[in-house]
């Protein structure tokens, strides 16, 4: 509970973060940037968990645990994603997402 800052303000922040992430995910062509955008989305969700836990259900710890869980998942995900990106770079000599459509047909 932080004095002077309401739950709405936190929601505004996290929503902004989420949609910036989504926007980045959709518009960027560079795989690394996309990865960063995904981090933004995940962190927006993590903030939401923590804030909702703190403001609405202060007696429990589920939200906190979930956000730690998300951080762990995000770490694993980044590891795999980076591996994919590197492999992708090796085959295509580029990290441009436009060139990853060979599975289309």
């Amino acid at each position: 509970m932080i004095q002077g800052i309401g739950v709405t303000d936190f929601f505004i922040i996290s929503t902004l973060m989420f949609f910036i992430g989504v926007y980045g995910f959709i518009t960027r062509k560079n795989l690394i940037t996309i990865l960063i955008a995904i981090e933004l989305i995940l962190n927006a969700v993590a903030i939401n968990f923590v804030i909702i836990n703190k403001y609405l259900y202060p007696e429990g710890l589920h939200g906190q645990i979930f956000s730690i869980f998300i951080i762990a998942v995000a770490a694993a995900e980044v590891a795999i994603a980076i591996a994919i990106v590197i492999d992708f770079y090796r085959t295509n000599k580029s990290v441009n997402v436009d060139e990853s459509e060979m599975m289309k047909y």
């Binding site: 989504v22 518009t27 459509e101 289309k104």
Partner: peptide, 14 residues
């Protein structure tokens, strides 16, 4: 419609 681009699909989802 099946462009194979992840971003198009995500856009559609969003």
């Amino acid at each position: 419609l099946q462009s194979g681009k992840m971003q198009d699909y995500v856009l559609a989802v969003v």
